[in-house]
Design a protein around this nucleic acid. Structure first.
Length: 173
DNA sequence: GCCAACGTTGGC
DNA sequence: GCCAACGTTGGC
């Protein structure tokens, strides 16, 4: 609880390359991280802990200035592709109003949106994609949530040392 | 508030 | 495409 409020925290955000690849993120420079439909992940992006329907572990929400690993899931291979930065919290996710979107939410109204997201900016793309295998083979990363069995959360907190280790691996040629 | 049924995620 | 693990829903 003594953590300095201005010190960035670190995250891992999953995106499927078929839906939103890092190349697109690089082009866009900024994007809304839309389509997340999980209460714990929503809580992270709203920026204040919200109460999930079931008991969930205590967590620190995102803050502006936090950094994240951009992870390609369902990819060949699945891998950390680069880094982004959290720019805005608690943004209304527009895809919930789009009937044609997979993320459409019939219960949502403009007055009472259900889903929120964050705005992120592109920071860098790694010269080397840091694959799941590489992560598994690095002992100091063995505690990562990503490696926990059945870990499906699409937004996960990452320790600073884990973030820095993966960044170093990604910058290697 | 329990829990079975159902839907989704994501590695393989 | 399979399927284990997990999250959400809804009946009671």
């Amino acid at each position: 609880m003594s953590k300095a409020a201005n010190q960035p925290q670190y995250w891992l955000l999953k995106s499927e390359p078929e839906t939103y690849p890092i190349e697109q993120f690089k082009k866009d420079k900024k994007t809304l991280w839309t389509g997340v439909r999980n209460f714990q992940a929503r809580g992270f992006m709203i920026g204040t802990p919200s109460t999930p329907p079931k008991k969930a572990p205590a967590y620190e929400p995102m803050r502006v200035g936090d950094y994240f690993l951009f992870y390609h899931s369902n990819a060949e291979p699945s891998a950390c592709m680069g880094i982004g930065r959290i720019e805005k919290l608690n943004q209304v996710d527009p895809t919930q109003f789009d009937k044609k979107s997979d993320s459409f939410e019939p219960k949502a109204t403009k007055e009472k949106p259900v889903w929120f997201c964050c705005e992120c900016s592109f920071v860098e793309q790694f010269s080397t994609a840091v694959s799941l295998d590489m992560i598994r083979n690095e002992k100091s990363l063995s505690k990562m949530l990503l490696l926990a069995r059945g870990s499906r959360l699409s937004i996960q907190p990452v320790r600073q040392d884990e973030f820095e280790t993966i960044r170093k691996m990604g910058r290697q040629k």
